[in-house]
């Protein structure tokens, strides 16, 4: 039973890591606490639901990815860019982000209704290895999220754009002085981050389904993971995602599903008060900037 929970947690943790990595690059490159990330998460699945009957599965997924990229870019263009140009504070960006989230969620609820939607209703086969049961959606989730995470890490660590993103995260002003087009990098960061979030949403949508309000919980979990793992360390985020998923699953198994968020945020408060810089990071964050 314990092994079963651990395997489920690993798969949930990888999905959470996808969302959290997207949140992470947006947060580290632009210092925006992007709550609308959860809105994009949900919007992607609903776009797929709408597009799927017209174009089929494969094109549906490709179109959804393009849609996610564009949605991220559009939010940056319409909402954050003007604030950035007026050099608004982090808190103003947070509030605008809340506004964007509320708008996206309510537009979706207006168009599609408030009930849970599942992308795939068919009876699903599962794989049995001794006592352990792995369902088919879980297999997909595992085999898609691992390469996606690897690709993302390669993009950040190896390519030239990744280098520019890291430069902006480190010092935006200096990066600008060195001739990097900061605005274009910000667009790319928002696009890539949204794509990561939506791919996790699609993988989740095939398994447990999604409703318009499920975005907030996962964004907050992602934010918790980014803070716990340390805002400078991508590996910390992945590690913390899997740890958090393990803790959440054990809470659900031994206590009840309702305690999950409470436990998550208690951990966040404890980590913030005890190791303000995150568990895998070694710099003081309190008076950063």
């Amino acid at each position: 039973m314990i092994i079963q929970i651990l395997i489920n947690s690993l798969i949930n943790g990888l999905l959470l890591a996808l969302v959290a990595l997207g949140f992470h690059i947006i947060f580290s490159a632009t210092k925006i606490f992007h709550i609308a990330h959860g809105g994009i998460f949900v919007a992607g699945v609903y776009f797929f639901l709408w597009a799927n009957p017209f174009v089929g599965l494969a094109y549906g997924i490709i179109l959804t990815i393009v849609f996610a990229f564009l949605l991220g870019v559009i939010i940056e263009w319409l909402v954050y860019k003007p604030l950035f140009n007026k050099s608004g504070s982090e808190n103003i960006a947070l509030i605008s982000s809340l506004g964007v989230y509320v708008i996206i969620i309510n537009i979706i609820a207006l168009l599609f209704g408030n009930e849970t939607k599942i992308l795939d209703n068919s009876i699903r086969k599962s794989l049995t290895l001794g006592e352990i049961i792995i369902t088919k959606p879980q297999l997909w989730q595992f085999s898609f999220s691992l390469p996606l995470i690897a690709l993302f890490l390669m993009f950040i660590k190896v390519t030239r754009y990744g280098l520019k993103i890291r430069a902006i995260s480190d010092n935006p002003l200096l990066a600008r002085v060195m001739g990097i087009n900061t605005q274009r990098i910000r667009y790319i960061v928002f696009g890539i981050g949204s794509v990561m979030s939506v791919s996790a949403a699609l993988l989740k949508g095939f398994d447990t389904g999604i409703d318009p309000y499920s975005g907030m919980a996962i964004t907050l979990s992602a934010a918790v993971v980014v803070i716990i793992g340390g805002t400078d360390s991508l590996y910390g985020t992945i590690f913390a995602s899997i740890m958090l998923a393990i803790i959440q699953n054990f809470t659900e198994f031994f206590l009840s599903a309702q305690w999950r968020d409470t436990v998550t945020f208690t951990i966040l408060i404890l980590v913030m008060l005890w190791r303000t810089e995150g568990i895998l990071q070694f710099r003081l964050r309190v008076d950063e900037k």
Binding site: A223, I227, Q258, W259, F265, T266, L268, I269, M272
Partner: peptide, 29 residues
């Protein structure tokens, strides 16, 4: 107050979100 002493700006706001969600969990459970 304790968290306001330890955390600044965005992190304080995040701490208050955490307090809010913990509160909801407690009264719900």
């Amino acid at each position: 107050t304790w968290s306001a002493g330890r955390l600044r700006n965005l992190y304080f706001t995040l701490g208050t979100i955490a307090l809010q969600i913990v509160f909801f969990g407690v009264i719900y459970n």
